[in-house]
Design a protein around this nucleic acid. Structure first.
Lengths: 330, 330
DNA sequence: AAGCCGCGTGAACATATGTGCAAGGGGCCA
DNA sequence: TGGCCCCTTGCACATATGTTCACGCGGCTT
């Protein structure tokens, strides 16, 4: 199935509306009245198969929203623990321990995409980072209609497409489409070669406009990078950084990054040279967003996650079970 | 399957917790990660059938909540119309026109029970009326954990059990169970024989306590009665009213009642003699509740519904499609 | 007008889910 | 301790749901 984006032109909007109406009615009958698809087909004067498709459509397009609540008296032990230790609301995604990293990422991203709907609303500015985690999420976003919401790119990314990572513009577009939001691109490389170039660029009016937006985010969504994990994240494979950069990071004690900005295990980031060339927002700026959602999958990212927590970058954490368990076992 | 109320004694609460945990995890895997039940069975080290049962349990016990949203740009024409004409938020339940009255009532009640969860919360006083509509609803309530919430009986009802109508105490208990709420009974007949008895009773301290509660409701839930419909509502079959009462109502222009209190087509109720003997709350009192949810099924109730709208008794209306259509076709 | 294309449809098949039933396990009483 | 009862389980079957495929209906081009 290809992207179900509306066609560029006017298109038979009425046909689409009719379909949406039918889907809505089918959904009512199915989820609220527990009718069987067969019965619904009869009421809608169509075939059972069409009803099945209508219902798929209803779920895929966000007409139907399914949420899961722990009873208040039975909060997950781990989520509770993370809340008290780090003052972060955690969503722990159950994934079997033996799952492969790819599986794990996919499953976390799928859940995260569905959870995201709870955070997105009208009249918001939503910052989105760029990386394999965000790419995986973008594939599964559930549409939700909003007005006057903007998707803001948090950090630059060359126009590369390495394994499984989309052009940043494509990724942002998916977020924009899902929420009916405008997209604010940030057409810069992930890292400048020369800090002076960055400083110069930062003074440009077009850049300032975007930086201002970044400073007024309502929600930020990002993963964490872990440069020294066994399987380094794609940013490090993509040829963005030189060996010398790595050595510098290592020497300066960096354990991870959020949107290309690096930090140490204790959460500090002062004096990490590479940050002078990075394109993501300063943590001081990032922290102005009231909701900062971090999606993490895989224990390899644990040190990096710890650092991001220490830096106070995260208000809401979506994390796979194994990593969550490791986090609280310290 | 019998009522799944917790056994009287302590019982293996741990077993129940374990089951809830499993159900929660199964629900995550099923609804958030789209795994098949087979796959979940594998992850949970149990059989597929058990997973099927766990998921049923998860839905029946409110762990999973499914809601349906019209896209903002496509509000149902009818609901929109009702909103602008009556300033009432409507939920229109799709039911085929040829459905029998019993079917229709069941389907509306099922939907209403599920919608109700959106209105119920902790620390609330919830008034509940009594009748066939409420009885049907009570059968399908989805549990939702709350703290410090009370279910308050709105009007008396003799201890009769006519076709399909439960003892009021049983009905209330179901609401209480579903929301983990205390139940405040109101042990009086539906109508007193003598207004003086009512007035005397109303001065009793135990009665006053309940009346005070009724005056501080957060939510009220009720149907409408329609004494002169072809198929009169059960209150009128139950032998509560004499022929003389009907003649009086007819003479005074009554078209319906909410919780035993009658009104005319224009919404007025002054001078309707029977109200002196009724046990439901004065409309002035009822209207103090910020949310007043009315559930109506069947076109026979249309005049009565119109009257209740005119009287401003309703803030939220749950109604079958045919009746809704008739309502706005005026 | 003919021909082509793309979409949506329902029938038939392939999977996935729901349920009756017999068997097993564990608490509770005698 | 033995026996009873009740709840839970997994199997096998019955239903319900998802998906493939061939078809036919517009809309558009030539």
């Amino acid at each position: 199935m290809t992207e179900n984006e509306p066609r560029g032109s006017a298109e038979g909007g009425d046909a689409v509306n009719g379909k949406t109406r039918d889907a809505l009615r089918a959904a009512h009958l199915y989820y609220m009245q527990d009718l069987t698809m067969d019965a619904i087909a009869h009421e809608l004067h169509t075939s059972r198969s069409s009803v099945s498709r209508l219902l798929s459509h209803a779920r895929a397009s966000g007409l139907v929203e399914i949420s899961i609540h722990s009873p208040l008296d039975l909060p997950s032990r781990i989520e509770q623990e993370i809340l008290t230790r780090h003052e972060v609301r955690a969503h722990v995604i159950p994934v079997p321990d033996h799952a492969s990293d790819v599986d794990r990422l996919d499953r976390v991203a799928l859940s995260a995409a569905r959870i995201l709907g709870q955070y997105v609303d009208s009249n918001q500015a939503i910052g989105v980072a760029w990386g394999s985690t965000m790419t995986a999420m973008s594939r599964h976003l559930v549409p939700k209609a909003t007005h006057n919401t903007e998707i803001v790119q948090l950090n630059g990314a060359g126009n590369v497409r390495t394994t499984g990572i989309l052009y940043a513009s494509e990724l942002l577009r998916r977020f924009g489409d899902a929420f009916g939001a405008r997209v604010q691109q940030f057409p810069v490389p992930a890292f400048f070669d020369d800090p002076a170039t960055k400083r110069a660029f930062w003074k440009e009016r077009s850049t300032r406009r975007l930086l201002d937006l970044q400073a007024r985010l309502d929600v930020a969504i990002f993963g964490v990078g872990s440069p020294f994990a066994e399987v380094p994240s794609h940013v490090y494979q993509g040829g963005y950084l030189e060996r010398a950069d790595y050595e510098g990071l290592s020497r300066e004690g960096a354990v991870g990054d959020v949107a290309t900005v690096f930090y140490r295990a204790d959460g500090t980031s002062e004096g990490i040279a590479l940050n002078e060339r990075a394109t993501g927002p300063d943590f001081a700026v990032l922290r102005r967003a009231p909701r900062r959602i971090c999606v993490v999958s895989g224990r390899a990212k644990l040190p990096s996650l710890r650092g991001a927590l220490a830096a106070g970058l995260i208000t809401d954490l979506i994390v796979d079970e194994g990593t969550a368990r490791a986090l609280v076992e310290a």
